[in-house]
Every structure is written in C-alpha cells, then in structure tokens.
C-alpha cells in the first residue's frame, strides 16, 4: 500500500459518501444519472467476484463490501425510494447502457490477461469503469444546473482515478515487474474523460461562479 493508493481509495470512498449524503439527507437525486450508478454497481460486481475466494487483506475485503453495498444502495434509492425517485430525471437520463457494456465486453473477450471467466469479468469491469461516467457527463450537459454536491461528487470520482495513476507510476518504479496495461490504459482513458469537467470545475472555483458546462 502506498500513500497515492490510500488517498485514492479514500477519495473514492468520499465521492460515494457525498452522493449518499445528498440522496439520504435532502432526499434528492437531481442531476444524478441512474445509468451511471447502475454501471458502477455492475463494475464492482464484476471486479469483486473474488471477494469470497481470494483474501488479500481486511482493508481490501472491507472496502470491497463498502463499494458493493453503497453502489447497490444508491441504485435502490434512485429506483425505489418513494421520495428520492421523484427527483430522478428519467427523460434526460437516456444514455443506453448496452452501447457501453457491449463494446467493453467484446474488448474484454479479445484483450485480457488470461481467458478465464473471472479474468474476463475483471477486465470487463476496468473497461466499463472507464466509460461509466459518460451518462452522467451527458446528463450534466443537458440539465445545466449542477448543484454543489453533484459537482463535488464528480470531482472526487475523477480525482480518485487520477490518484490511482500516480499509484501505478509509483508501483511501476518501486516494484520489479509490476506491469498491468489493462488497468493503466483504462484508468488513463477514464481520467481523460473527466478532463473538460475538471477544467470547468476549476474555472468555476477560480472565478467563484456556479459550475456551468457548455451545451
């Protein structure tokens, strides 16, 4: 474990907590894409298939349980909670999951470290996580008004992957033959997708104005 990875995991955890706080306290999911949340639940399910078979550390297992539990809770809140679901903007959140999942699945079948079920699912989860934010970014452009909590949620979500890249560089430099192109390439694409959001988020912070994404 290194400081980059620990900070990254804590940033990721913070993003989930910010979203759960928003949904649980003000009972609203305005501006949040259910599609993205469902994709994240799928990402964690496919990535943590080994949660019961391969024990790595208490930290690893506890964090996996937290991410699985929170991602499914958020989807449950947005789908079934009688108050929260009213603030879900299903007419704007129209991105089709299948357009993201299918190419990622095909790519995972073609490019993977080993052609086994768990390995392909693990690989699929990295490709899918890289693009899972797209429905959320599309929704932001459509809804225009981005409340602070939503902006912070997306910022933390992007920052966690950028920190993972620092972790991968650190491990590549310090650990012999530590090479994992699949997470590296996926993580890079994922972070780049946040690029313009980070730019407008920084501008809104610098000029102290409300966050607005160009149409």
């Amino acid at each position: 474990m290194n400081i980059f990875r620990l900070t990254a995991d804590m940033t990721h955890l913070m993003s989930v907590i910010v979203l759960l706080l928003k949904i649980h306290t003000i009972k609203s999911c305005a501006g949040i894409s259910l599609k993205t949340q469902e994709l994240y639940a799928i990402v964690f399910t496919c990535r943590y298939l080994d949660i019961f078979t391969d024990f790595i550390s208490f930290y690893n297992t506890i964090m996996k349980v937290i991410f699985l539990w929170t991602s499914f809770s958020i989807v449950w809140y947005m789908r079934y909670h009688k108050i929260v679901r009213r603030s879900y903007d299903k007419d704007q959140d129209t991105f089709r999951h299948v357009f993201l999942m299918l190419p990622c699945l095909v790519l995972a079948l073609l490019i993977n470290e080993r052609f086994t079920f768990k390995e392909v699912m693990w690989t699929f989860s990295f490709y899918l996580e890289a693009v899972a934010i797209l429905p959320q970014l599309v929704l932001l452009q459509r809804t225009r008004n981005i409340d602070n909590l939503t902006g912070q949620y997306i910022f933390l979500l992007g920052a966690y992957r950028a920190l993972y890249i620092l972790n991968w560089i650190y491990r590549y430099v310090t650990e012999p033959n530590y090479v994992h192109w699949i997470p590296w390439m996926s993580g890079l694409v994922q972070t780049l997708l946040y690029g313009d959001f980070f730019y407008y988020y920084f501008l809104s912070w610098k000029n102290n104005v409300k966050l607005q994404l160009p149409a």
């Binding site: 990875r5 995991d9 990721h12 080994d50 391969d54 790595i56 550390s57 690893n60 964090m63 996996k64 991410f67 470290e113 080993r114 390995e119 693990w122 993972y164 972790n167 530590y178 994992h180 997470p183």
Partner: peptide, 10 residues
C-alpha cells in the same frame, strides 16, 4: 497464484 497477488487493488 501470482496473478491474484497482483489483484491487490480495488
């Protein structure tokens, strides 16, 4: 096995 050791990240 070695590959699972390398899967020590979340």
């Amino acid at each position: 096995n070695p590959t699972y050791k390398s899967k020590d990240e979340l």
